[in-house]
Protein backbone atom coordinates (compact mmCIF):
# COMPACT_ATOMS: atom_id res chain seq x y z
CA UNK A 1 0.00 0.00 0.00
CA UNK A 2 1.40 3.36 -0.99
CA UNK A 3 0.83 6.42 1.16
CA UNK A 4 1.70 10.02 0.46
CA UNK A 5 2.78 11.80 3.63
CA UNK A 6 2.31 15.49 2.94
CA UNK A 7 4.03 18.19 4.95
CA UNK A 8 1.96 21.37 4.82
CA UNK A 9 3.12 24.79 5.82
CA UNK A 10 1.58 28.22 6.38
CA UNK A 11 2.76 31.74 7.31
CA UNK A 12 2.33 31.02 11.03
CA UNK A 13 4.59 27.98 10.72
CA UNK A 14 7.19 30.01 8.86
CA UNK A 15 7.23 32.48 11.79
CA UNK A 16 7.69 29.66 14.26
CA UNK A 17 10.43 28.18 12.11
CA UNK A 18 12.27 31.50 11.99
CA UNK A 19 12.05 31.75 15.78
CA UNK A 20 13.97 28.47 16.19
CA UNK A 21 17.66 28.52 17.10
CA UNK A 22 20.21 27.27 14.58
CA UNK A 23 20.75 24.17 16.69
CA UNK A 24 17.02 23.44 16.70
CA UNK A 25 16.82 23.82 12.91
CA UNK A 26 19.79 21.54 12.44
CA UNK A 27 18.15 18.96 14.67
CA UNK A 28 15.01 19.22 12.50
CA UNK A 29 17.02 18.55 9.36
CA UNK A 30 18.95 15.72 10.97
CA UNK A 31 15.73 13.99 11.95
CA UNK A 32 14.44 14.27 8.38
CA UNK A 33 17.65 12.74 7.04
CA UNK A 34 17.56 9.99 9.66
CA UNK A 35 13.94 9.14 8.81
CA UNK A 36 14.70 9.08 5.07
CA UNK A 37 17.72 6.81 5.63
CA UNK A 38 15.73 4.50 7.87
CA UNK A 39 12.87 4.19 5.37
CA UNK A 40 15.32 3.51 2.55
CA UNK A 41 16.93 0.78 4.64
CA UNK A 42 13.61 -0.84 5.50
CA UNK A 43 12.57 -0.91 1.84
CA UNK A 44 9.57 1.35 2.46
CA UNK A 45 10.77 4.57 0.84
CA UNK A 46 9.59 5.31 -2.69
CA UNK A 47 10.74 8.92 -2.79
CA UNK A 48 11.03 11.89 -0.45
CA UNK A 49 11.69 15.54 -1.28
CA UNK A 50 11.47 18.96 0.28
CA UNK A 51 10.00 21.69 -1.92
CA UNK A 52 11.47 25.13 -2.61
CA UNK A 53 9.68 28.24 -1.38
CA UNK A 54 6.20 28.80 -2.87
CA UNK A 55 7.50 32.15 -4.11
CA UNK A 56 9.18 30.08 -6.84
CA UNK A 57 5.94 28.41 -7.85
CA UNK A 58 4.61 28.78 -11.38
CA UNK A 59 1.06 28.13 -12.46
CA UNK A 60 0.62 26.56 -15.84
CA UNK A 61 -2.50 26.79 -17.95
CA UNK A 62 -2.67 24.84 -21.18
CA UNK A 63 -5.61 25.25 -23.48
CA UNK A 64 -5.96 24.59 -27.22
CA UNK A 65 -2.24 23.96 -27.53
CA UNK A 66 -1.39 27.29 -25.94
CA UNK A 67 0.57 27.39 -22.70
CA UNK A 68 0.35 30.26 -20.25
CA UNK A 69 2.66 30.57 -17.25
CA UNK A 70 1.89 32.73 -14.20
CA UNK A 71 4.61 33.40 -11.63
CA UNK A 72 4.00 33.11 -7.88
CA UNK A 73 3.64 34.03 -5.13
CA UNK A 74 -0.09 33.46 -4.94
CA UNK A 75 -1.44 35.60 -2.13
CA UNK A 76 -4.73 33.76 -1.81
CA UNK A 77 -3.02 30.51 -0.76
CA UNK A 78 -3.22 30.00 3.02
CA UNK A 79 -1.36 26.70 3.15
CA UNK A 80 1.32 25.36 0.87
CA UNK A 81 3.09 22.06 0.39
CA UNK A 82 6.59 22.09 1.88
CA UNK A 83 7.64 18.53 1.21
CA UNK A 84 6.52 14.92 1.02
CA UNK A 85 7.37 11.30 1.67
CA UNK A 86 5.94 8.66 -0.66
CA UNK A 87 6.15 5.35 1.21
CA UNK A 88 5.06 1.80 0.45
CA UNK A 89 4.22 -0.13 3.61
CA UNK A 90 2.26 -3.19 4.65
CA UNK A 91 -0.21 -1.65 7.09
CA UNK A 92 -2.04 1.71 7.40
CA UNK A 93 -0.90 1.80 11.04
CA UNK A 94 2.70 1.80 9.83
CA UNK A 95 2.05 4.90 7.69
CA UNK A 96 0.78 6.70 10.81
CA UNK A 97 3.87 5.57 12.70
CA UNK A 98 6.09 7.03 9.95
CA UNK A 99 4.12 10.28 9.76
CA UNK A 100 4.47 10.72 13.51
CA UNK A 101 8.25 10.61 13.07
CA UNK A 102 8.24 13.49 10.55
CA UNK A 103 9.67 16.40 12.58
CA UNK A 104 7.00 18.79 11.24
CA UNK A 105 4.37 16.67 13.00
CA UNK A 106 4.91 18.76 16.15
CA UNK A 107 3.15 21.63 14.34
CA UNK A 108 0.26 19.42 13.31
CA UNK A 109 0.94 19.96 9.61
CA UNK A 110 1.54 16.41 8.47
CA UNK A 111 -1.16 14.64 6.49
CA UNK A 112 -1.42 11.04 5.20
CA UNK A 113 -3.20 10.34 1.94
CA UNK A 114 -3.64 6.78 0.63
CA UNK A 115 -2.58 6.50 -3.02
CA UNK A 116 -5.19 5.20 -5.47
CA UNK A 117 -4.06 2.05 -7.20
CA UNK A 118 -5.27 0.16 -10.23
CA UNK A 119 -6.25 -3.04 -8.47
CA UNK A 120 -9.53 -4.58 -9.33
CA UNK A 121 -12.08 -5.43 -6.71
CA UNK A 122 -13.88 -8.70 -6.36
CA UNK A 123 -17.63 -8.45 -6.39
Amino acid sequence: MKYMILIQSNPRFVERWEALTDAQREEFGRRHLALTAELAASGELVVSEGLADPALAKRVTSRDGETMVTDGPFAEVKEHLAGFYLVDCDEPARAIEIAARVPDAIWGLVEIRPVLDTTEWDM
Binding site: A41, S42, G43, L45, D88
Partner: peptide
Protein backbone atom coordinates in the same frame (compact mmCIF):
# COMPACT_ATOMS: atom_id res chain seq x y z
CA UNK B 1 5.90 -5.28 -11.45
CA UNK B 2 5.30 -3.77 -8.00
CA UNK B 3 5.53 -0.12 -9.16
CA UNK B 4 8.30 0.76 -6.70
CA UNK B 5 11.93 1.82 -7.32
CA UNK B 6 14.53 -0.94 -7.78
CA UNK B 7 16.42 0.33 -4.72
CA UNK B 8 13.32 -0.31 -2.62
CA UNK B 9 13.11 -3.92 -3.78
CA UNK B 10 16.87 -4.45 -3.37
CA UNK B 11 16.59 -3.18 0.18
CA UNK B 12 13.62 -5.43 0.97
CA UNK B 13 15.53 -8.45 -0.31
CA UNK B 14 18.76 -7.74 1.57
CA UNK B 15 16.91 -6.88 4.77
Amino acid sequence: ALFVPAATVAQRVSR
